[in-house]
């Protein structure tokens, strides 16, 4: 009996660690662009001492020292920046890298948020771990309220079929399990590529002609960065689909990259998607 109660206690201790009030770390490294955005949104921007080469938002993030890519950051660069904590995600960073950091006694925080429904909890957990719980709770509440507002205002009429193209040539669509798929559903539409096997399927032109969407959304349109090259690339595709009403009636929209990462801009991305769906 005594043995059992000890075992139970040990399990209890390991499964439910008492959350001690975290002290705000002074030096933070982010190994994912969406985590970088969340850190800045939580007001921790000036404590970020290292980011990946993919971290380009907000613009201040670009000025931070780089530690390499998302899947292949430099261990040396990370260690030499002497971080108090390294913020990572299961969606892009490798488990091996986290284990290496732990073996070097560097504290890590790994976010498991992947879908829009995880967003509010993701930011609250991050805030709790970094000692900015109140700010995080406020942000999470704001996201929740905005999400509920979008969901409450279901568009009139039948649900629209949306094809979200992430690359026009060869044609790659956003499929199931992606933030974009979630966003289309929340905005009250049907993701045409939502029943594919892959998250980002190479989509069949024939399938579009057979089962045409009500609107085509193409992204990301980064006009200031690459002079609208996605529009140039999409020209060929759209001319091949020119017989479809969706192209004839100009129901093709270019959107920003707000929906490409699960972070502070995601809700704005859903709002943008909703606007083009209503047009």
């Amino acid at each position: 009996m005594f043995k059992w109660s000890v075992t139970a206690m040990i399990i209890f201790i390991f499964l439910f660690p008492v959350p001690c009030r975290a002290k705000t770390p002074e030096r933070i490294i982010s190994l994912a662009p969406n985590m970088t955005e969340m850190l800045f949104a939580l007001g921790l921007g000036d404590r970020v001492v290292g980011v990946t080469s993919f971290c380009d938002y907000p613009p201040e993030a670009r000025k931070k020292p780089k530690v390499g890519g998302m899947s292949n950051p430099s261990l040396e660069a990370v260690v030499s920046l002497k971080p108090d904590i390294v913020v990572m995600t299961t969606d892009g960073n490798s488990k091996e890298f986290e284990e290496r950091l732990s073996s070097l006694h560097i504290k890590t925080y790994v976010s498991r948020a992947r879908r829009i429904r995880d967003l509010a909890k993701g930011i609250r957990d991050l805030g709790a771990a970094l000692g900015v719980r109140e700010k995080a709770d406020r942000l999470a509440a704001d996201y929740k309220a905005r999400l509920e507002r979008i969901e409450a205002l279901k568009p009139a009429g039948p649900k629209k079929k949306v094809l979200f193209i992430v690359w026009p040539d060869p044609l790659i669509a956003a499929g199931p399990g992606t933030v974009i798929d979630d966003a289309i559903k929340i905005a009250g539409g049907i993701n045409l590529a939502g029943r594919s096997i892959a998250e980002y399927p190479k989509y069949s032109l024939e399938a579009i002609l057979r089962d045409p969407p009500d609107l085509i959304v193409i992204g990301p349109d980064m006009r200031e960065q690459d002079s609208g090259s996605i529009r140039k690339l999409a020209r060929g595709l759209l001319s091949r689909l020119r017989t479809l009403p969706v192209v004839k009636n100009h129901k093709v929209f270019y959107v920003s990259d707000d929906l490409y990462r699960l972070g502070p801009r995601t809700i704005r991305g859903i709002e943008e998607l909703r606007r083009v769906m209503d047009e």
């Binding site: 080469s53 993919f54 992430v166 690359w167 060869p170 044609l171 190479k202 990301p220 690459d226 060929g236």
Partner: peptide
């Protein structure tokens, strides 16, 4: 490269017939 376009360049390298015209 860090841009999306670059990563997509790999798709071209793998061979693609779907956009033939």
């Amino acid at each position: 490269s860090t841009t999306e376009g670059l990563r997509r360049a790999t798709l071209w390298i793998f061979g693609d017939l779907s956009m033939s015209d």
